[in-house]
């Protein structure tokens, strides 16, 4: 479990992370969502003890990272796949990591196998493609068989196959009961990967909820209704307190009601329905709406 309590990071007068509190539970993938520059990476570096918080603290299973004994056995992290020496082989990179945390050499081969890099293990990491680097980074994160895993924008720049592989991989890790925190600036990606969301904008917590709840709440439910008797149905829906707008092709767009409710009302009043279809707003729109203020504010600060 990861627990952030009032986490704050200031660089001079700029506040990168502002009084951020959230928890990440084991057994599921938690998405750490926010636009670029929202403070996701800074927060992750503070979780891992690389950056010193200006205020607040963050605990991993009740302890700050820097107090963990052999930390790789508790926490695995992939913050940047390029954190390898280009002239060092993949195996040598994993070997020194393993030795530093008292892990047997067999773990090196095991994680190389798990990410499918066995064939190129003795090649220099500098010659790896982005996808291969990302796999090497994941191998390093898995080295100590940790209970807690952190990934910072792991699918950035990957091809669809690589994205699918990482997504499945993270879900499997969570299914094994591990705590998985993965950051992204793409809600559509998180909707497919994460079951829980921590959403931040401009360093502040916007919301923490389940992904489904977040999407339902933020996209808003509208239902498209088509009927030859709209003149009759429209006022009935307005009476019930729903918002009714004229949609395309003479249909009605009803918000605030489920399709079940509208169907029931129509049946009770003998209205013929030709179409009754729930409409989903786009995730991107919803996300922009929620974090839009944060981003605009950010731009103004920059002036």
């Amino acid at each position: 479990m990861i627990e952030a309590i009032g986490l704050t990071k200031r660089y001079g007068r700029t506040v990168a992370v502002d009084d951020l509190s959230f928890t990440v539970q084991p057994g599921r993938v938690t998405g750490f969502l926010g636009p670029n520059g929202a403070g996701k990476s800074t927060t992750m570096r503070m979780i891992l003890g690389l950056d010193r918080p200006t205020a607040g603290r963050v605990l991993i299973d009740g302890k700050p990272y820097t107090e963990l004994n052999r930390p790789l056995q508790t926490v695995g992290a992939l913050l940047d796949a390029k954190w390898v020496h280009p002239n060092r082989s993949a195996r040598a990179h994993l070997k020194w990591l393993a030795v530093s945390n008292g892990l047997p050499k067999s773990r090196v081969d095991a994680v190389l196998e798990a990410v499918g890099l066995t064939q190129v293990a003795s090649k220099n990491a500098g010659g790896f493609s982005l996808g291969m680097s990302q796999r090497l980074g994941i191998a390093a994160a898995l080295l100590g068989d940790p209970k807690v895993l952190l990934f910072d924008e792991p699918v950035n720049g990957l091809d669809p196959e690589g994205i699918l592989w990482i997504r499945t991989f993270m879900q499997n890790l969570a299914a094994e009961g591990r705590t998985v925190l993965v950051s992204s600036h793409l809600l559509s990606e998180m909707a497919l990967t994460a079951s829980e969301l921590v959403v931040i904008g401009r360093g502040k917590l916007i919301t923490q909820s389940s992904t489904q709840e977040f999407i339902d709440r933020s996209t808003g439910n509208t239902v498209l209704v088509r009927s030859p008797q709209l003149f009759k149905l429209g006022p009935l829906l307005v009476d019930k307190g729903f918002t009714v707008r004229d949609g395309a092709d003479g249909a009605l767009s009803v918000s605030g009601a489920t399709s079940d409710q509208i169907g029931d009302i129509a049946a009770a009043n003998g209205v013929v329905l030709h179409e009754l279809s729930p409409q989903r707003g786009s995730l991107e729109e919803a996300f922009m709406q929620l974090t839009g203020d944060a981003v605009e504010y950010h731009a103004e600060i920059g002036k």
């Binding site: 891992l48 003890g49 990272y65 790789l72 390029k82 954190w83 390898v84 280009p86 390093a140």
Partner: peptide, 18 residues
């Protein structure tokens, strides 16, 4: 300096927080 250049110093500090 190469550790800083390639950020392996961060990997080092992750493995050895002291």
């Amino acid at each position: 300096t190469t550790e800083y250049r390639f950020s392996t110093i961060r990997a080092t500090f992750l493995a050895v927080p002291n």
